[in-house]
């Protein structure tokens, strides 16, 4: 026992981690408990690394940036999606249950393939600038109003961590639903003057029940987005624009 664990001011944490290896389908998924002492300022990222370093090197989870920018460490924390690197253990009870984000292909334990899902979504919704203009890298770009650039940047902050999909009841019921991350992309490119697509063309991408009309406004995305993106207002705005085409 370490000195710290005897001190009454240090909490002993139990992390129950859902272990599952899809490579070994015969081994059923199970919750495995790990114990460790809480350290000041400890995030789940730090706790998981400590467990992997000192207790079980086979534990799988994803991290890159440790600063809430890369979107790799999304997981279910006591049943709710969140980024491990941005979650302080001090804000959680001493029993913490961790599970992989639902709705994505499981790589193993807490590691899921959000990249594959995001790529599929991006290809389906064609979430890139569609422009017929020849790009000349030597020429100065057409300037943009700062307010507009701000607006686009606000939506561009999405890190595609997958928390909005894991927090969306609609997406959990219907796997083809584009989700807030996809609809936010469309809202973002709609704002961008460099993207020449008309609303008619965007309607083709999101004008059905797998797109914006599938959203049932459960607002899990809005309330659980680690980047606090204004998803509810964006989806409502997109819905108004797309619905307007229905009466023209």
């Amino acid at each position: 026992m370490t000195a710290a664990s005897q001190s009454p001011s240090v909490r002993r944490l139990t992390l129950q981690i859902l272990r599952c290896d899809p490579q070994q389908p015969e081994a059923a998924a199970r919750l495995q408990p790990f114990q460790l002492d809480e350290a000041p300022g400890m995030t789940l990222y730090l706790a998981l690394n400590e467990i992997r370093d000192t207790q079980d090197p086979s534990l799988q989870f994803d991290f890159v940036c440790r600063a809430g920018i890369c979107g790799s460490c999304g997981m279910m924390i006591n049943g709710r999606p969140g980024l491990a690197c941005r979650t302080l253990t001090a804000n959680l009870p001493s029993l913490i249950t961790l599970a992989p984000l639902p709705g994505f292909e499981l790589i193993g334990d807490l590691s899921v393939n959000t990249g594959k899902w995001m790529r599929g979504m991006s290809e389906r919704l064609e979430s890139w600038i569609h422009s017929s203009e020849e790009v000349d890298p030597c020429r100065l770009e057409t300037p943009m109003e700062p307010e507009l650039a701000e607006q686009i940047y606000e939506l561009e902050r999405c890190i595609e961590c997958g928390c909005c999909i894991a927090g969306c009841g609609t997406a959990q019921m219907r796997s083809d639903f584009a989700g807030a991350v996809g609809l936010n992309q469309i809202a973002r490119f709609r704002l961008d003057p460099r993207d020449e697509r008309s609303d008619d063309e965007l309607y083709r991408l999101v004008g059905d029940d797998d797109g914006v009309f599938g959203c049932m406004t459960l607002l899990g995305c809005q309330d659980l987005c680690p980047k606090s993106l204004p998803l509810q207002t964006q989806i409502a705005y997109l819905r108004r624009k797309m619905a307007a085409l229905g009466i023209t």
């Binding site: 049943g79 709710r80 009841g169 959990q172 029940d209 899990g220």
Partner: peptide, 29 residues
């Protein structure tokens, strides 16, 4: 009816999701 869970799997998904998420607006739905 378009929004109702279409089968047992979907119904189980939304109920489990709601229980886990503990999120007001999801319960309201």
């Amino acid at each position: 009816l378009r929004k109702f869970p279409a089968d047992y799997r979907q119904h189980r998904a939304i109920v489990r999701h709601s229980i886990n998420l503990r999120h007001g607006d999801t319960w309201l739905w």
